[in-house]
Nucleic acid binder design. Sequence first.
RNA 1: CGGGGUAUAGUGUAAUGGCAGCACGAGUCCUUUGGGAGGAUUUAUUCUCGGUUCGAAUCCGAGUACCCCGACCA
Length: 415
Amino acid sequence: MYQSKLFYKTLKKAPKSVEAVSSALLTRAGFIDQAGAGSYSFLPLGLKVLKKIENIIREEMIAIEGQEILMPALTPKENWQKTGRWESFDVLFKLKGNNKKEYALAPTHEEIISPLAKKIILSYKDLPFYLFQIQTKFRDELRVKSGLLRTREFLMKDLYSFHTNQRDLENYYKKVTKAYLNIFKRCGIKTYKTLASGGSFSKYSHEYQTIAESGEDIIYICNNCQLAINREIKSGVRKCPDCNQSKFDKKKAVEVGNMFQLGDKYSLPFELKFQDKESKEKSVIMGCYGIGLGRLMAAVVENSHDNKGIIWPKEVSPFQVHLIQIGDNRKVKQSAQKVYKDLQNKGVEVLYDDRADKAPGEKFAEADLIGIPIRLVVSEKTLKNNCVEIKKREKTKVELVKINRISRKICCQKS
RNA sequence: CGGGGUAUAGUGUAAUGGCAGCACGAGUCCUUUGGGAGGAUUUAUUCUCGGUUCGAAUCCGAGUACCCCGACCA
């Protein structure tokens, strides 16, 4: 991508209404734009990151036999009445269509997926299965917060599992735990599995929390085994339920994912049943598992930045390489072009700062702000030695590499 | 939903009730090219509506938007 063509604009200062570090940096670097309270546009750079996160999640879901589907956001009132959530779900977006027909913009999809599953499940032979989608959710939050961390409209991965019994659910629950840890690791953040309230779903749930100053949750991390406990249930918990120790670190954190054992909570209202081996009718046992993509993206930035800007972890960076051309004479331009084409031909995603009218300082400052992990510089100075300069975003050390070796060097680092 | 705050150029900010200014950005021209470079020049319906006043960015009222704290929160 030629930077001269990229739809973006950087800001030296964040708009004054922006407070959280992640939204300040994402706004300043041209990844997102606020459309209103709790609603954001993702610009080309931001959408690239979001898509990378989406693909990581998709891969990990497929690896645990998840099958991708897509359900509607616009959903009929009757489904929500069946579970009582038309009234009890206080952030439900309700709207009226023609003929006074009422709808909910779905904040989650148990009410949609349960009747869907009912059409497929007849016998124990149809179970288990696992369905997920990556789709926009709507929640009419009483108060939005901290940029992408709490919005009214957000992309969410929601996975639902269907089982014949509790033990099978618990086994799958463990698999999802592993998949979640992979996802967060690949996104470059450390998360803590956190025991939390089940809300309206179940007695307990598990959340995946990452430490962040802008976070709205308080968690207590066990010094011994690293299990965390959400403040919302901590008052009743003196010792770590996993290892029985009682020393904890208290931290502010962002919840990037969660998991619930639903049991038959939604099977009952939707009469989600199957026939077992003895031809007896039983309720399907369900689990649900969510990850907020935009929030995860913001959490990555909360975790990984310095005073100059964002530092993207490799797998979620909008581009792998930021190629900067300094000076505009023919030799520099041709050499930079060649490096750009070589890398592209090898499948490396490159943002190429080809702008002739920008001073070097500005280009470097922008590159630091945008935060692509590898920076290459082609200039008269480097070309004297027939070289390209290479620097990692988080390091200060620069290195010169012969121009004909650079694409190979980058491709080696990739793997 | 309760409480608090803010609203001036694209962004950040100034202006006793008395000429709307500055910095950066952006446009044009020139110079410059290794850490947001320099010069010239251009760039505003002070959120909206109403009121007070000779005169309102400034005071008053209403509205709207956004932010923060709390409550709430799969």
